[in-house]
């Protein structure tokens, strides 16, 4: 995974609560056995007017002019502004893969679904929980004639809006370190292989039925 670096990006406001993983990437695209190439199908049913199928060339498909990502103001957006319970539904990691492949690096919302939130960190995406009033304010700001731009500083845990407003945010220290260093979780865990083996040896005595498969 690439280390997460600070950047300044355009905010695309997606004004819907409970956006589920089926909406983020419809199931016909889950048949892929790869991790990449999902970006063109992100929000497929909302973004295009025709039914999407895997392998389609999206450049010639009819766009839904009412969908936020098709608005000229938000082209190249790297920050997605969302409403509560974003990413609910399935555990599919295809959802963060599609968001990242499309070019998003940060998602701002008042709350996220648990599994989705977790999956983001595994893919270099930074989900930030903000107070509902803050989110409301950002929606108002991002709808102006000029798109809102935000500077994201992960080490400093700070968002700075283009008018200079500063919004600090919280993040779990372990997740922050992994994003910043782009670390491989499995490699980190395997550093504790001895502890895992010791645990297994103890459990084989305490609960042998769990090892009898």
């Amino acid at each position: 995974m690439e280390p997460f670096e600070n950047f300044t990006g355009v905010v695309a406001p997606l004004d819907r609560a409970n956006v589920d993983t089926d909406a983020i990437i419809p199931k016909q695209f889950l048949k892929s056995i790869k991790r990449t190439g999902f970006g063109p199908y992100l929000f497929d049913e909302l973004r295009y007017l025709d039914p999407g199928e895997p392998g389609m060339d999206c450049r010639s498909r009819p766009l839904n002019p009412d969908f936020v990502l098709n608005d000229p103001r938000y082209q190249g957006a790297q920050i997605l502004l969302a409403r509560e319970n974003f990413g609910c539904g399935s555990s599919r990691e295809h959802a963060p893969w599609a968001l990242a492949d499309f070019g998003f690096r940060v998602i701002l919302a008042p709350s996220f679904a648990d599994i989705f939130h977790n999956n983001c960190f595994k893919n270099g995406l930074l989900p930030i929980v903000l107070a509902p009033e803050t989110v409301e304010g950002l929606f108002a700001r991002s709808r102006g004639p000029q798109a809102l731009r935000i500077d994201v500083d992960l080490p400093g845990q700070l968002l700075t809006l283009d008018d200079g407003t500063r919004i600090p945010f919280e993040i779990d220290a372990g997740n922050k370190a992994r994003l910043l260093e782009g670390l491989d979780d499995i490699g980190l865990t395997l550093q504790h292989a001895d502890a895992i083996r010791a645990y297994e040896a103890r459990r084989q005595i305490e609960a042998p039925w769990l090892f009898a498969v």
Binding site: S91, R92, E93, I115, N119, G174, D185, I196
Partner: peptide, 21 residues
């Protein structure tokens, strides 16, 4: 019992563990 993403499926296959809170 809980659902996990694909990176975690790989993590469990490789280590039989997950990092959790």
């Amino acid at each position: 019992a809980f659902g996990i993403g694909t990176s975690e499926v790989e993590h469990v296959l490789a280590t039989q563990c997950l990092i959790q809170r």
